[in-house]
Each structure stands twice: as C-alpha cells, then as structure tokens.
Simulated assay, not measured.
Amino acid sequence: MEIVILNTGCANLTSIKIAVKKLGYTFQITSNPDSLLKSKKLIIPGVGTASAVMKILYKKNLVNIIKNMKQPVLGICLGMQIFCQLSEECNGTKTIGILNNCSTVLLKSSHLSLPHIGWNCIDIKKKHLLFKNIQNKSRFYFVHSYIIPVGKYTLATSNYDVFFSAVIQKNNFFGVQFHPEKSGDIGAQLLKNFLEI
C-alpha cells in the first residue's frame, strides 16, 4: 500500500513518521502531485498556519488535486481545518473548500487559556470504522487555537469551554482536531483504523 504523508513545508513530520512506521506501514513523505494521485491513502499533518500551508499548496498546484481525491484522506489538526472553505486565521484565509458552508473559527473562552493544549476526551456522535476498538470518552492530545464548529460533518465532539468538532467526515475525507500521532496507544488505534479503511 502506498501511503503518502504530505510535506507541507511547515509541519514537524517526525511524530507522524514514527507513528505510521510503528504500525508496520511503509510510506512516502512528498508534495509531488503524481505521488498524491497514485497514493492509496493521504495524511495531511497539522502544524503551522492556514495561510502558510495554503500558499504552499497553491504554489505546488495541489489544491484541486487534494479536493478531487477519491482515496481516503486524513487531515490532522490544521490539516483538517483547511478542508473548510475559509479560516479566520490571519484575517481570513481561503482554504480548500471540501466542506460546504463551513469555516474554521477562533476558539473563544471566557476563562480558559489559549491555545487549548493537553489531553481531552471525545464524545462519539456517530458510529464509524474510524472508531473501531476506541471507547467513547477516550482521551486524545490537542494543541490548537482554532476549531471547526459542530455541524453535519461532525463524527465526534470535544469541549474546551465550548463544544467543537473533534472528528469530521465528508465522503473519503476524514479530519481529527487532535494529534493521534501524539496520543499514545489510542491514537495509534485511530491511525490504524484509518489506514485499514
């Protein structure tokens, strides 16, 4: 199986590399359009800003390629947020637009510090193969200041003063707001489930 981890040019890829390798899968780290098209699975890692990532994706002519992919795609954190049409980050950034009528917005709290950093449980709202052998209220590791509000694409939520989408899906596109590659055994299980879809 050819798994591609997208090299966005601004993400720390070490953790995701180690996590996928530990599961026994071979993979390629690249931003080559042909490699993305030929891949069986694509993982878009999540570190950086929406504007920086989108500039790289446009420069490498990857926006339409990603948007039109038919194979399973997993966006992690920022990698999920760019599935929206717009991000409030950097005074508004046009993103890929896979999720219709959906924007990434700033996480606002009246009394909790931002960014949201640490372990938090998820509340599974819809049954899915992505949650195989994962119990409801399992804890994952989060690092983020922006969220996708709860909506029709939400599979699971989490709460940090407000409820937000922890896991989303539209067709072959999956997104997680947390970092499975930094979430120990439970994160490894979720990655395994994605790679087996």
Rank of each mutant, 00 (worst) to 15 (best):
V4I: 14
L13R: 07
I16V: 11
I16D: 00
A19T: 07
A19P: 11
K21W: 06
K21N: 13
L23T: 10
Y25C: 11
Q28F: 14
I29H: 04
P33T: 03
D34L: 15
L36T: 06
L36M: 07
K38R: 13
K40F: 09
L42S: 02
T49W: 11
T49N: 12
S51P: 10
K55Y: 08
K60R: 11
K60Y: 05
I66A: 00
K70M: 04
P72L: 02
L74Y: 01
L74V: 06
G75L: 02
I76Q: 01
I76K: 03
I76H: 02
C77G: 08
L78I: 10
Q81G: 04
Q81M: 03
I82A: 00
F83W: 02
Q85P: 10
S87G: 05
S87T: 04
S87A: 04
T93S: 04
T93G: 05
T93P: 11
I96S: 02
C102F: 08
T104A: 15
V105W: 05
L107R: 04
K108F: 05
S110W: 06
S113E: 12
C121Q: 15
I122S: 04
D123I: 13
K126H: 12
L129H: 13
F131G: 00
Q135L: 13
S138R: 06
F142R: 09
F142N: 04
V143G: 09
V143A: 08
P149R: 04
G151V: 09
K152Y: 11
Y153S: 06
L155K: 12
T157G: 13
T157L: 07
T157I: 14
S158L: 08
N159V: 12
Y160Q: 01
D161W: 05
V162S: 15
A166L: 11
I168H: 05
I168G: 05
K170I: 12
N172W: 00
F174G: 02
F174L: 13
V176A: 04
S183D: 00
G187R: 03
A188M: 14
Q189T: 14
L190R: 01
L195T: 06
I197M: 11
